[in-house]
């Protein structure tokens, strides 16, 4: 009963710490011991300027329910129908719908650049407005190439640039999965907005990924750095390449099932996806 409203007493403190971090990292960028790189050379930018299906030169789709709901007991059937994925007025719109479809109760979409755009290291960022409601689970993430099926997850590595659950509208999290630190043991951190939320406006989610580090940022706030010292297993991010996935899942172990307050349809709006590399590489 008393859980109606929880106020994070630490949020101001957290902000302060974050700001200190930014300051420290920023001010130390010339320090040789810091691994901070500026990735400035644009490799790919999809600004979603053409109405209709997303650019087939960049994007492919996962269709169906995968194995066991894409390994997470997710409830949706992924399609590439325009009802679930389309570009309109400069925005990629991924829509989760509540409907009976091939045995599933929801439909949505999952786009990936496998075989079309894969890269080791770089700055990957997207500007996204997220959906809301219990059971919604959007993500912007990278998965390591499986070398034609010769390697399997988590050995291939996974970099979750942004994940979010719709019943925590002020919070996102960035995570890495690898051998010995996957699923519930993955390594990451969440980032919380103060006096704002992720479903009412666009925010930039990104990483800067180089040899032995991944820096996570939201908008202009760098909120985490993950290095080999942070993971309890093999660092699988100095090999590549990795490809991009954008998806909007419904249900599954992480977000739980939608409840009576969850409104459908829900949309994940993507203003752009940009990939840079280090101009010195």
């Amino acid at each position: 009963m008393n859980r109606y409203i929880k106020i994070d007493k630490n949020s101001m403190f957290k902000t302060f710490v974050l700001m200190s971090m930014v300051f420290i990292l920023g001010s130390c960028s010339e320090d040789e011991t810091q691994q901070v790189t500026n990735f400035t050379e644009l490799v790919m930018a999809d600004e979603f300027d053409v109405n209709g299906a997303p650019n087939p030169l960049i994007w492919d789709y996962n269709i169906g329910t995968g194995d066991n709901g894409w390994g997470n007991n997710e409830l949706q059937y992924y399609t590439n129908r325009s009802e679930n994925v389309t570009v309109q007025n400069g925005i990629l719109i991924i829509t989760a719908k509540e409907e009976q479809f091939n045995g599933a109760s929801y439909t949505s979409a999952r786009l990936l650049t496998k075989g079309k755009l894969e890269q080791t290291y770089g700055r990957f960022e997207a500007r996204i407005r997220l959906p809301y409601g219990k059971g919604l689970w959007p993500a912007f993430w990278l998965l390591g190439d499986d070398s034609k099926g010769t390697e399997v997850w988590p050995q291939i590595g996974e970099i979750d640039i942004m994940e979010y659950v719709g019943d925590k509208p002020t919070s996102v999290f960035g995570t890495v999965h690898g051998p010995g630190y996957s699923g519930g043991e993955s390594i990451g951190k969440s980032y919380e907005l103060v006096n704002d939320r992720f479903d009412t406006g666009f925010h930039v989610f990104g990483i800067e990924w180089g040899p032995n580090y991944i820096n996570y940022y939201v908008d202009d706030v760098l909120y985490n750095q993950i290095t080999p010292e942070d993971v309890p297993g093999e660092w699988v991010f100095n090999r590549g390449p990795f490809y991009i996935i954008l998806n909007l899942a419904v249900g599954g172990a992480l977000p739980g099932e939608p409840n009576e307050e969850t409104k459908f349809p829900q949309t994940m709006l993507v203003d752009y996806v940009r990939v840079y590399k280090n101009s010195n590489n």
Binding site: Y4, K6, Y132, G166, K168, P169, R197, D199, E261
Partner: peptide, 8 residues
Amino acid sequence: FNLSTGKN
């Protein structure tokens, strides 16, 4: 309204 708790 939906609040920061995620609840209506």
